[in-house]
Amino acid sequence: MNIMTEAAVEQKVQAGLNEPAVKMKGESVDVHYGEKQALFGVNLDIRENQVTALIGPSGCGKSTFLRCLNRMNDTIDIARVSGKITLDGEDVYDPKIDVVELRARVGMVFQKPNPFPKSIYENVAYGPRIHGLTKNRAELDGIVESSLKKAALWNEVKDRLNESGTGLSGGQQQRLCIARAIAVSPEVILMDEPCSALDPIATAKVEELIDELRENYTIVIVTHSMQQAARVSQRTAMFHIGYLVEEGATEKMFTNPDDKRTQDYITGRFG
């Protein structure tokens, strides 16, 4: 799965020992929705095995950027993306890249839990099935179980795997969607405000989960909650009206940001 290109190896070497390697990279990314430009020349590195939080007021382009990373904007007819986005050094918008394979490597969890109207088991087994990841039922059972365990949902649902996924509570549904994303063994998981539809207890569980997942995955999370960004992320990128304002280690961003807009936003003065 993890076949590294030369460029990626080079990056790893360059990054040295302290800094984790760059997993995905956006270079002067512009996005237009029809006539309207939503992103202006964004340059942003996503580092391996770290949680990168994208923050900024509504409509600032953070979700748009997130959706570029696995080309979910392709499903919107009027969206146009220019610039360069790489995954392990490969351009994901290269016509030779199969978008279906890309999305298997870069999974996504959405703002509103969107389990399929199928059983819990089928929800998780869906990805492995379409990608032919398993040879037999036992292997598939294994993937379902381990994915649900990684998503910290196994204990709650192990006795009712055949019940509908839509019958779970909101927090459970969101963890089911995370399990579903994990089941195809992605390298990167994109999360678009994964907790905005959840109560504080469910949010705490999902945040805890994100922290654990960091060990094996690279995570990019869009969030409106400053506390959440501070709690779960190692790096933070601040967006404002389509521009990347600044990006850096979360600690620095929240204590001593370079840009006044970041300062104002995280202290609640605007947005």
Binding site: R103, N114, G127, I130
Partner: peptide
């Protein structure tokens, strides 16, 4: 819902699947 389609696309499913 559109969200369900996107959920499937995001897992790397083709349109036909």
């Amino acid at each position: 819902p559109r969200a369900i389609r996107e959920g499937s696309f995001a897992l790397g499913a083709t349109k036909g699947e």
